[in-house]
């Protein structure tokens, strides 16, 4: 994935400016930044849902345009983005991911169903195929989205805030799963608000605020200066050996703390 001087946004209003980065095949990258910094726009840009005003953007060597998403790209939106009372079974929801390559009949072939079931089993949703999607827990819903993205061949996974609104175990599970997929060659780009999660687990982080503020390993990137430039507020960075923690500045409400 290659972006060179990209400026992008919606309806003529730019959200991202002069964005330049390169993500190689097989990388695992987290994008962080404050709300409105363009994290989601970056994902939308890569999936052909935002306007590009300037610069070049290519995924797997193919240019990405609005309405023309990059090839072999899987998108996992936030789980709140759909109506979970929709009358679909788990298996059917995954199978819908195959729609574009499937025959023009209302049903899915036996081979397609086998593929979906195998994938559900691999993602720990085996046995839930016939359940209505509304009965899934938050973590299961996220894995369902993952299965739907992967059922169609994809080599690049884009995940929008997979850590927000889910409990600790789900976070671990999703991370393990993504780690396994990444080991097997999948390129992963996700957005998150959780800096410490990124610092603890991901090899590379992009700090975004309208543009790329910093890019590199969390150890190198998470410095008070970079984080101030990204978030516009002071944070405390604690280093311990090969670990780095980001903590909120303390005592903000104490008298005489400068506020």
């Amino acid at each position: 994935m290659l972006a060179a001087g990209v400026s992008a946004g919606y309806r003529g209003v730019p959200v991202l400016r002069d964005l330049t980065f390169r993500i190689d095949r097989g990388e695992f990258v987290g994008a962080v930044g404050p709300s409105g910094s363009g994290k989601t726009t970056l994902l939308r840009l890569l999936t052909g849902q935002a306007d590009r005003f300037a610069g070049d953007l290519a995924v797997f060597g193919a240019p990405v345009r609005r309405g023309r998403p990059g090839p072999r790209v899987g998108y996992v939106p936030q789980v709140e983005s759909v109506d979970w009372t929709f009358p679909l079974t788990v298996e059917h929801a995954v199978l819908l991911g195959l729609t574009a390559d499937s025959r023009p009949v209302p049903w899915f072939s036996r081979a397609e169903r086998r593929r979906a079931r195998a994938l559900l089993g691999r993602l720990g949703l085996g046995g839930l195929e016939g359940r209505p999607i509304g009965e899934l827990s938050g973590g299961q819903q996220q894995r369902l989205f993952l299965a739907r993205a992967m059922v169609r061949r994809c080599d690049l996974l884009l995940l929008d805030e997979p850590t927000s609104g889910v409990d600790l175990k789900t976070r671990h599970d999703v991370l393990h799963l993504l780690g396994e997929l990444n080991e097997a060659g999948m390129t992963v780009l996700l957005t998150t608000h959780d800096l410490n999660w990124v610092a603890a687990h991901l090899p590379r982080v992009l700090c975004l605020n309208q543009t790329v503020v910093a890019d590199g390993s969390p150890m190198a990137v998470f410095t008070p200066g970079v984080l101030r430039a990204t978030y516009g507020t002071d944070v405390r960075v604690i280093r311990d050996g090969d670990m780095v923690f980001v903590a909120d500045e303390t005592h903000l409400l104490r008298p005489g703390s400068g506020r």
Partner: peptide, 23 residues
């Protein structure tokens, strides 16, 4: 409806992802 069944359903359920996945 017969021919476009899956695409209609996917578009109704989740238009964003449907577009990404080639619908």
């Amino acid at each position: 409806v017969f021919c476009c069944w899956k695409a209609l359903l996917f578009t109704t359920f989740d238009p964003t992802v449907a577009a990404v996945q080639g619908v």
